[in-house]
Write a protein that binds this DNA or RNA. Structure first.
Lengths: 217, 217
DNA sequence: CAACTATTCAACTTATTAGTTGAATTATAA
DNA sequence: TTATAATTCAACTAATAAGTTGAATAGTTG
């Protein structure tokens, strides 16, 4: 094997894996799967794609070995093969925000709502949680909560916030988090909580961010 | 702005950055630039592309803001905008090797040569360097050495190894490194040194790997 | 200024990709 | 076994990307 042939071979493979991230919808699929395993149907609904097209994307992700699936009843449940994919997703997101300022601005703009929302970073969390006067809530779908959550967090899916709000005490500060800074569930939750007279904060971090920082303990 | 519209906007941008990595030649360009800034001509030669095509790829990298350039005389020198790009490159390489076994096998196969070569990992390095009986050599082009190298390493570009070999003592163990495990310069160097009767080892790591491990000191 | 060099642009061909729709497959449950 | 629900396949269209060649531009040096 010639040197050039060898290089072409390996760079072809590197780029094949990179291609998995290079379509907006496929990136979104991987991002959703980084929260928890999901069925084709759920993925199609969340990404606003046809089921057929979702399936096709999943096939291509299978081919580049970034996802696997398991069967359960007559559902096929897809999941990421490796946690390092989450790291790659978040490095690319971070790079995008630093290099393409418009993305950061759009996000901040989209998140700023009539009620001023105060955002905490993951480093602030421990000090906030000290003392019993705060409550941490995870507003993602319950499946994602079950697949992994920040210790001490209570599951209140955004879809059920209205019904479950009474379980939260107005004497406590409420901290809401969701899939990460590019997901709007937590923003919506904080907005609603403030409207209802709660003291609420946004945690701008994902479970994955939390894990990365706390992997040593 | 609607929720779907917002998602489409940000995922479009994430994928735009990812697209930079998704062509084999562009990945190779980024990989070369991760070693040191380079001119269009050098990049074209190293990747076996026409200058026009190289330029076009560089334009697209400029557009996705992964590279910048500076002018020097009538040369245009491209460089990466951010060190985090190196991290992304190496995560993708690592993921590719774990998921696509054929890549790892091909690399190991390509590297195995008539002379059995012993490969050291970056963690082994400090113990090997203790005592004055080893010599660490950097066999990349001198420009890349100048842009950054492992402390204590001596620059002996692979192209000049024949002439410079006399500067190495046969009483010392020689450790050679290059751009990383997917670059063959160090392998070729070790092979040649062994033929000439030296005790030589391959360091399977890049300067970037070294920096990552030693960033705290 | 003229000659030269490095780089980019423009026009074009070929190949690849995203997405649609409707039919086919597969597994479960009645 | 049949009906049903989940998923995939196949055929097609429209859009995008990679690469080639040759001309254009811009900056340097004699």
């Amino acid at each position: 094997m010639e040197s050039r042939e060898f290089k072409d071979f390996i760079y072809n493979h590197f780029s094949k894996v990179s291609k998995a991230f290079s379509s907006p919808k496929r990136f979104e699929l991987l991002d959703l799967l980084s929260q928890s395993p999901k069925t084709v149907e759920v993925l199609a609904k969340e990404t606003s794609m046809s089921v057929a097209n979702t399936s096709k994307h999943l096939q291509s992700l299978l081919e580049s070995r970034l996802v696997t699936f398991k069967k359960e009843k007559n559902f096929i449940i897809y999941e990421l093969v490796d946690d390092s994919i989450c790291d790659i997703l978040s490095s690319i997101k971070a790079l995008t925000e630093t290099q393409m300022v418009e993305v950061k601005l759009t996000r901040l703009d989209y998140i700023s709502k009539p009620y001023k929302i105060e955002a905490l970073s993951i480093e602030d969390l421990p000090t906030f949680l000290e003392g019993e006067m705060t409550e941490l809530i995870d507003v993602r779908p319950s499946r994602e909560y079950e697949a992994g959550h920040i210790p001490g967090a209570k599951s209140i899916p955004i879809t059920e916030l209205k019904e479950m709000i009474s379980s939260l005490s107005k004497d406590k500060k409420v901290i809401a988090y969701c899939r990460g800074p590019h997901c709007v569930y937590a923003t919506e939750a904080v907005e609603y909580l403030k409207e209802q007279g709660y003291t609420a904060y946004l945690l701008e971090a994902s479970v994955h961010d939390w894990k990365q920082i706390n992997q040593n303990n």
